[in-house]
């Protein structure tokens, strides 16, 4: 840590999420209050939601719904598991979860990186719009539903109906895929994709340990891009 960086401690057993978020939202550009240590989160909701500053928030324990929601610029590190919709609609920044994530992790997120060390439940990356999601464990059913853009990298397995009604997002899965959703197909893994995957490995801290060739790529067959009655059975 830079010597001039100020560290702030926030104990959520004696102060409120409102007070924490209010302080984080009040940060001005150029502020040196760049490290925030949050203790006793106890599954509380909306921790560090709506942050719009390049700060680091370290949360010591499990968080509830929507931690880091709509994040811009911030690095949010969760030493525990995360509830529904972690980093939902994130625009930029980095959200790192040491444990597992519940449903809809990274839902609709436009940018930034979401790194989950454990597993992610159903609908991981639903309607994602540009975020890079990396899951070191497995993901649940209906993940990347209507995924528009960005990448979802999964080191473990994927549940049923992966990438249903997917648009232009890229999905990389190392393990098994229980089933693919409508209009989602396996695609050729070319060098550009292996290079992209290698970048994700670096983010996850496993570059050099895993061969990108172990992954398969999935994306849109683009057959449902225009509604046609002959495709009605696919819905």
């Amino acid at each position: 840590m830079n010597a001039s960086t100020q560290s702030h401690a926030f104990d959520l057993s004696s102060s409120t999420v409102r007070e924490l978020n209010s302080a984080l939202h009040a940060l001005k550009e150029g502020s040196n209050a760049s490290l925030w240590r949050v203790t006793n989160p106890r599954g509380l909701h909306a921790i560090a939601a709506g942050v719009d500053a390049p700060v680091t928030v370290e949360v010591d324990g499990p968080v509830g719904y929507y931690c880091g929601g709509m994040n811009k610029h911030a690095t949010i590190h969760i030493r525990g598991s995360a509830g529904v919709g972690v980093a939902q609609n994130m625009m930029s920044g980095f959200v790192h979860i040491e444990g597992d994530a519940s449903q809809a992790a990274g839902a609709t997120a436009h940018g930034g990186t979401l790194l989950i060390e454990g597993n992610a439940a159903a609908r991981c990356g639903i309607s994602m719009k540009g975020v890079d999601i990396i899951v070191k464990g497995s993901i649940g059913h209906m993940s990347a539903f209507m995924a528009q853009a960005g990448t979802l990298t999964v080191f473990g397995d994927a549940g049923e109906a992966l990438g249903d009604s997917i648009y232009e997002a890229r999905l990389y899965v190392r393990g098994s895929v229980k089933s693919l959703g409508s209009d989602c197909v396996e695609k050729e893994m070319r060098d550009e994709h292996k290079a992209q995957l290698f970048e994700r490995f670096k983010t996850a801290g496993v570059d050099g340990q895993i061969d990108p060739g172990e992954f398969k790529r999935y994306g849109s067959a683009r057959n449902l891009y225009h509604f046609h009655v002959d495709n009605a059975g696919a819905y």
Binding site: H45, G50, V84, T108, I126, S127, F145, Y167
Partner: peptide
């Protein structure tokens, strides 16, 4: 392309979730 709009929200279902979603929107604003 034909653009579909989903019929359900992606990250909440039912009244209990809606309460938490509203809490998040209030926090953000």
């Amino acid at each position: 392309i034909d653009q579909r709009s989903a019929c359900r929200h992606p990250d909440w279902t039912g009244p209990d979730d809606l309460e938490i979603k509203i809490e998040e929107l209030r926090e953000i604003t």
